[in-house]
Amino acid sequence: MDTLPSFCRARVLILGVGNVLFGNDGFGPQVIDYLTRHYVIPEDIYAIDVGTGARKVLFTVTLSQTRPQELVIADAVDWGQEIGSVLEIPVELLPVTKVDDFSLHQVPTSNMLRELQDDCGVKVSVVVCDVGEIPQVIEPGLSSAIEAAVVTAGEKMASRYELRLLLP
């Protein structure tokens, strides 16, 4: 049996990051849900809802000698932009080291993304949606603006990787 987790062997790894229990913070996982419900995901692409467990996967990928060529992170941010706006940002724009003044969840995640790109040769792209404030108490469900943003982000990814629509 192959001892590598499946996501290490993928050519493209797409991670949906966020907590579906906290309103629009569920943007990332919902992008994965959208992709898997509407498109055929080919064998060389691995799309996974990692919730708030992105670190587990990123550690494993960072330390692996077999890695995806491309890593795509879908996540929610609160940067004061128009709510629902979807941006793709280069990893260079991620905050450095300990300063984590935006809501990309666990601090080391942003560090590891840099390490993956700079030291491991993985092309990293981060697709973020400005969701405004995340509720402070549990409140599942996306707002209509973020539901639309999920479709926008999902369609962009489907187009980039030429995913085939699932037959009805």
């Binding site: 001892t3 590598l4 987790p5 290490c8 494993t60 692996s64």
Partner: peptide, 12 residues
């Protein structure tokens, strides 16, 4: 690294 991979694979 190898053992962490194995742990993830075993759980999978």
């Amino acid at each position: 690294v190898k053992v962490r991979h194995m742990c993830a694979k075993m759980l999978e």
